[in-house]
């Protein structure tokens, strides 16, 4: 392919002009948004360091895939069941670990997440191991196709196949963002913020800190499950490698980018992150593709370091909250 514009660095901007690129970025960014909303609820608004979000995502995606392919459950019905299963797991992880101090909680949730991933890798009878599970999305494909034909009927001659998924993931992401934003403004949300500030003060004022933290974690696990559905629908299969702790770390990067304690910043952070991350693939350097993909992580790290140094509150966080938090 002959790049139309060549900068000194060797970046081709061709890809940025294609709708396919943006839909690809958009679907993943939407998935990350839903995923990181859970982290925002936990970290930004409750002060609990959940490093196990990728594990909850795995439970959601695998529950859905197994229910559909093994148990013959209807795809749409499998979604609420998979969310419920994931919430039970959130409860199981939270009950023993939420009494721990912040840093130990982070380790405990990370360990739980890895335990889940290693189970999906090794419980082959249930999960098909590293081969993964396919063929759970026929009902979704039907919906996708009827949306496509609807688009054709309104005059889009050749709609992108990814467009329906893109549309649905963002409708869900924005609805969830709106819902959480509203919830944060209620007295319930105020108790969560009080826990983030000082748990003992909240307890001394009659708030059952543990119950609220548990609710926060269980809700985040449900958001993880929903993100898992979209991840699975985008890939069209589920494999254990998709649920590495890296996914959680990227979620945290998005949180920092968008700004802590701001739900709307999550979507913006996710879009910027994914655009940079995908866009960096088009760096044309005299190195191999594997090296380029490693370089992406290095550059991402540099961006995060720069952000921490010059704008620690992220794009939408409040500077004064950052200062007062110290």
């Amino acid at each position: 392919m002959e790049p139309a514009t060549l900068l000194p660095l060797g970046v081709s901007f061709d890809a940025f002009a294609s709708l396919g690129f943006w839909l690809g970025v958009g679907v993943i960014a939407g998935t990350f948004t839903i995923f990181a909303l859970g982290l925002q609820l936990n970290v930004g608004f409750t002060g609990i360091f959940n490093f196990g979000q990728a594990g909850f995502m795995a439970i959601g995606a695998y529950s859905m895939a197994i229910l559909v392919t093994e148990e013959g459950v209807n795809f749409w019905l499998s979604l609420p069941i998979a969310i419920a299963i994931t919430m039970v797991f959130g409860l199981i992880v939270g009950l023993p670990s939420l009494r721990l101090r912040t840093d130990y909680l982070a380790i405990a949730t990370l360990a739980a997440s890895e335990a889940i991933r290693l189970t999906t890798l090794n419980a082959r009878e249930l999960t098909n191991g590293s081969q993964g599970i396919f063929g759970f999305d026929t009902e979704f494909d039907d919906l996708s196709e009827s949306i496509e034909s609807l688009l054709i009927s309104v005059g889009w001659s050749d709609p992108e196949t990814l467009f329906p998924l893109f549309m649905i993931v963002w409708i869900v992401a924005l609805l969830l963002t709106f819902g959480l934003w509203r919830l944060q403004k209620t007295p319930w949300g105020r108790v969560l913020r009080a826990l983030r500030e000082d748990e003992d003060a909240a307890r001394a004022l009659g708030k059952n800190a543990f119950a609220y933290k548990l609710q926060s974690l269980v809700m985040a696990s449900a958001l993880g499950a929903i993100a898992g559905f979209f991840l699975a629908l985008n890939l069209k299969f589920v494999v254990p490698d998709e649920f590495l702790p890296n996914f959680t770390f990227i979620g945290f990067a998005i949180l920092i980018l968008g700004g802590l304690a701001n739900y709307w910043g999550v979507a913006v952070g996710a879009i910027i992150f994914q655009t940079i991350f995908e866009g960096l693939r088009f760096l044309e350097l005299p190195i191999t593709e594997v090296q380029v993909s490693a370089l992406r992580y290095i550059l991402l790290g540099l961006v995060l370091i720069g952000l921490m140094a010059f704008r620690p509150q992220g794009l939408f966080g409040k500077r004064e909250e950052m200062v007062l938090g110290e």
């Binding site: 913020r193 983030r196 000082d198 003060a201 007062l324 938090g325």
Partner: peptide, 9 residues
């Protein structure tokens, strides 16, 4: 004894 103001509220 050591006040617990909820600082970011």
């Amino acid at each position: 004894q050591i006040t617990k103001a909820l600082a970011r509220m």
